[in-house]
Nucleic acid binder design. Structure first.
Lengths: 103, 103
DNA sequence: CTAATTTTGACAATATTAGTCAACATCAGT
DNA sequence: ACTGATGTTGACTAATATTGTCAAAATTAG
């Protein structure tokens, strides 16, 4: 189970800012143990938490969200031969959706 | 909740072959009610079931799997502004993974 | 050494998903 | 309209998975 890159990135950022896990955990109202696991990919991050952390760290929110979302996708496709093709098809579907929404 | 396109496709194929839901359900050892819901996107399909159906219908398995997997991805990204960008990032990650595996 | 921080594992509480069933609805053929 | 086959719906239970909480152990910094 994963969320590797996002968790790692979040840890990296936090350490750069020299903020203790303990303190950040309090700020976002999450148990320290859980945040620790999230940073190491042992528990799943949530969109909400990624957002909050982006704000606290004053870090580009969209960049982190994209990282987070792409982790989820990788997870769905883990070890799947058809990964790349699937992404193309998904892209087409989304583009189709979007064009319909604009009407 | 979703899995729209895959379920619909499966129904379409089944109807073309004029196979009753009831019979197919027995073949793949799933309750009729559940299969009915899966075809209409009320319950989630599983990879395993998609495979089995592809075989029973003698239909291209990969095509159906890609449809199924892309539905899952769309679900993760539902209504997400960052959808397309996310897919690009996911694609890069997968390609990176693949190139590492080959070493 | 000791104080702060982080990690680990266990556990209960919740939530999500899957399986089962019976009643109901639809439809075709007669 | 009646019958039988098919498909749908909703309710309920069982099985899994996720989340929250905590305390003890491990690690790190000073």
């Amino acid at each position: 189970m994963s969320m590797q890159s996002t968790g790692g990135k979040l840890r990296q950022i936090r350490e750069l800012l020299e903020l203790p896990l303990r303190r950040v955990a309090v700020m976002i109202d999450v148990d320290v143990a859980v945040l620790s696991k999230m940073e190491r990919g042992e528990r799943k991050l949530t969109k909400d938490i990624v957002r909050k952390l982006a704000n606290i760290y004053n870090y580009n929110e969209n960049e982190l969200l994209v990282l987070f979302l792409s982790d989820k996708i990788i997870y769905d496709l883990q070890g799947e031969e058809l990964g790349i093709v699937t992404l193309k098809v998904a892209e087409d579907k989304i583009k189709l959706q979007n064009s319909k929404l604009k009407k």
